[in-house]
């Protein structure tokens, strides 16, 4: 008899639908609406490299020691330096970072003795040209500028 009523009132169907609707709860939705809703990456995320500048005087923190270039497994960092005769110190002139070969292993970041080179949380690194991947000193200091899309 119970089975008869279950069949008549489609109890099984509604039970199944209840499972479906229960999972419509917004907290069960995992999809991120990407350009509108940006993912929050972890604090230690290894993304685009950045060459830090001293916020007080705007000078670069890099001491042109070349350790990052030596640590890099892909040899993609080229550090150009010049000896300043007045202060008798090496000063950074150019810094090239070839992102197209980078595998974001973080070894350059580990090698840096003054925390000048850092892998940041920026992850939007697409470029229309291959040359766009080779970042110079200015680009490394300013960081990537992804196009904002209105949605």
């Amino acid at each position: 008899m119970g089975k008869f009523f279950r069949t008549i009132f489609l109890v099984d169907l509604f039970q199944g639908l209840w499972v479906t609707f229960r999972n419509q709860n917004p907290k069960n939705i995992y999809t991120e609406q990407y350009p509108a809703e940006r993912p929050k990456v972890a604090e230690r995320y290894r993304g685009a490299p950045r060459l830090n500048i001293n916020p007080d005087n705007g000078e670069t923190l890099c001491i042109a020691c070349n350790l990052c270039a030596l640590a890099c497994p892909e040899n993609l960092i080229v550090v150009g330096s010049e000896r300043n005769e007045q202060t008798r110190r090496k000063e950074l002139t150019t810094f090239t970072y070839d992102l197209s070969r980078c595998m974001f292993c973080g070894l350059c970041e580990d090698a840096c003795p003054v925390d000048a080179l850092e892998l940041t949380q920026d992850f939007e690194l697409a470029s229309y040209t291959r040359e766009g991947w080779i970042w110079d000193r200015q680009m490394l200091e300013e960081g990537p500028k992804p196009t904002p899309y209105k949605c």
Partner: peptide, 14 residues
Amino acid sequence: KIFENYCGARLTTH
């Protein structure tokens, strides 16, 4: 997510 929080990468963690 635990991997990303720990070392900053999800798949090729190093």
